[in-house]
């Protein structure tokens, strides 16, 4: 019996008096695609940062595939399980996509790196810009680079923070395709998003966060109407 991909117990984060995430108990089974929805400030980004071990919880704990999420000496092995895509590019502006992927690939100790990077660049449609500085790429291309970086080491868990933000329709299509592929390959995906259409398209599960609290956790409904009303009910705001 495989341990859940994600399990949290009373996981919380405060910044001063501001509760970014109230104590959260969440479980995500391996292979699920969970959409995290909610208005701004709901705690979606915070949750993902905590799971990626980029932020330290104020309280509580999280486990990924049974291993505790932590930093400090000896914890580095657990990070292989995670691929994270967030608002920032998380790559070096001055380096090309190829150089970026090669650098991060080396950090993960991936064998056959050159071929791997070539394949990744091709898969995400970055072959043409492979040797241009990442800073000169369009937003859509940068997002794809970010995803390429996150998937390079083939992590079983993908954490995505609003990946469809400010993407044009072409880039959105490429990204959706890549995510669908990842999910079909058995990866667990947690995706925070405002884009209810994408969430409906891709997710099998949904969790609604509101003001740091988990308002709803359910199977993803079918149909746009159902999504909109679910969102409205749980988040207490008009659907988008």
């Amino acid at each position: 019996m495989m341990p859940p991909a994600v399990r949290t117990r009373a996981l919380s984060k405060r910044y001063g008096a501001r509760v970014a995430l109230a104590p959260l108990d969440l479980e995500v089974a391996a292979g699920e695609f969970l959409a995290l929805v909610g208005p701004n400030g709901a705690g979606k980004s915070t949750l993902l940062l905590l799971l990626a071990a980029l932020a330290r919880p104020s309280d509580g704990q999280a486990w990924l595939f049974g291993h505790p999420v932590e930093r400090g000496p000896g914890s580095s092995a657990g990070r292989r399980a995670v691929g994270y895509v967030g608002h920032p590019l998380i790559a070096y502006r001055a380096l090309s996509p190829r150089q970026n992927l090669e650098f991060f690939g080396r950090l993960y100790g991936l064998p056959g790196l050159e071929a791997l990077v070539d394949a990744s660049l091709a898969r995400f449609g970055l072959a043409e810009q492979a040797d241009d500085p990442a800073g000169s790429l369009s937003r859509g291309q940068q997002q794809r680079l970010s995803l390429a970086r996150a998937l390079l080491h083939e992590p079983p868990l993908l954490l995505l923070d609003e990946p469809f933000n400010s993407l044009d329709s072409e880039a959105t299509g490429v990204l959706s395709g890549a995510l669908r592929q990842a999910s079909r390959a058995g990866r667990t995906v947690l995706m925070a998003t405002h884009d209810l259409d994408r969430a409906r398209e891709l997710a099998g599960q949904v969790a609604v966060l509101r003001r740091g609290h988990l308002a709803l956790r359910a199977e993803a409904p079918a149909g746009a109407q159902a999504w909109a009303s679910l969102y409205r009910r749980a988040a207490g705001e008009a659907g988008e």
Binding site: A53, R79, G86, P88, Y92, L107
Partner: peptide, 13 residues
């Protein structure tokens, strides 16, 4: 600049 530091922190390093 673009939080490349997160890339380093995410790595098994």
């Amino acid at each position: 600049e673009d939080q490349a530091l997160w890339g380093l922190l995410l790595a098994p390093l």
